[in-house]
Design a protein around this nucleic acid. Structure first.
Lengths: 115, 115
DNA sequence: TCAATTGTTCAATGAATTTTGAACAAAGGA
DNA sequence: TCCTTTGTTCAAAATTCATTGAACAATTGA
């Protein structure tokens, strides 16, 4: 129903986006969103990436930088990647970051957050 | 002559790289290095992006994250982009970031540092 | 109405970041 | 040997960032 405040497409700032993605928790959130593109996820889906309070903080950062869209539905927040806007503003950027993120660093496995 | 300490190619960390590029001064340095690929630049070339001391700080950050290579020659430091290593570890990432950085944000011009 | 679910906000804390000027060091040229 | 050029290191200060627990708010279901 209610879309939480977010920057418009032409307000998207590269340094701000890179900065917000320069954090392993937030990178994990974005990678998970990308693996589930189409289905909006609620905050609770990310609970193994941080505490409830901490996720609220990181998810707000992502939304304020324009990486994610957050819609309030009931007591839930439905979160999606702003792929269209990001692709329009910075073509190819998101995909190359996601591709890099999926290269398992040093043979480690990236576990999926709770489903 | 002497190559300053830097992470090896497989030590390159995506979050660390994005984090270090999430700063407009450092992004400006990297964009300028890319526009001059081939010719190593010394710190002084970047003087309009910050003070001498401040640049020393930012250039160290870039080197420690593995984005740049720094070679000490005399009293100078010759700085280059680690394009080969970055491309090998994260194919396409650097180019998409550079392409995004070259989209003038909001019609602004990016002035070249002093030559 | 009551209780549970889902998240946010707040204050506090500790850590990391950015910036500055002063002092320093190393190399090169006059 | 001096002086200049090129950068680094250090300490200090200001700011921002990440994390936590407690309290709160809103919605939903029994």
């Amino acid at each position: 129903m209610a879309l939480l405040p977010q920057p418009s497409t032409d307000q998207l700032d590269l340094a701000a986006i890179l900065g917000v993605l320069g954090d392993s928790t937030r990178l994990g959130i974005v990678a998970y969103l990308a693996r589930n593109e189409g289905k909006p996820l609620s905050c609770g889906q990310f609970l193994d990436l941080g505490s409830k309070t901490n996720l609220s903080y990181h998810l707000a950062k992502l939304r304020e930088a324009g990486v994610t869209r957050t819609e309030a539905v009931g007591t839930s927040r439905l979160i999606t990647l702003r792929r269209d806007d990001l692709d329009r503003r910075f073509p190819g950027l998101l995909d190359s970051i996601l591709a890099s993120a999926n290269l398992r660093p040093l043979g480690q496995t990236v576990p999926d957050p709770v489903s």
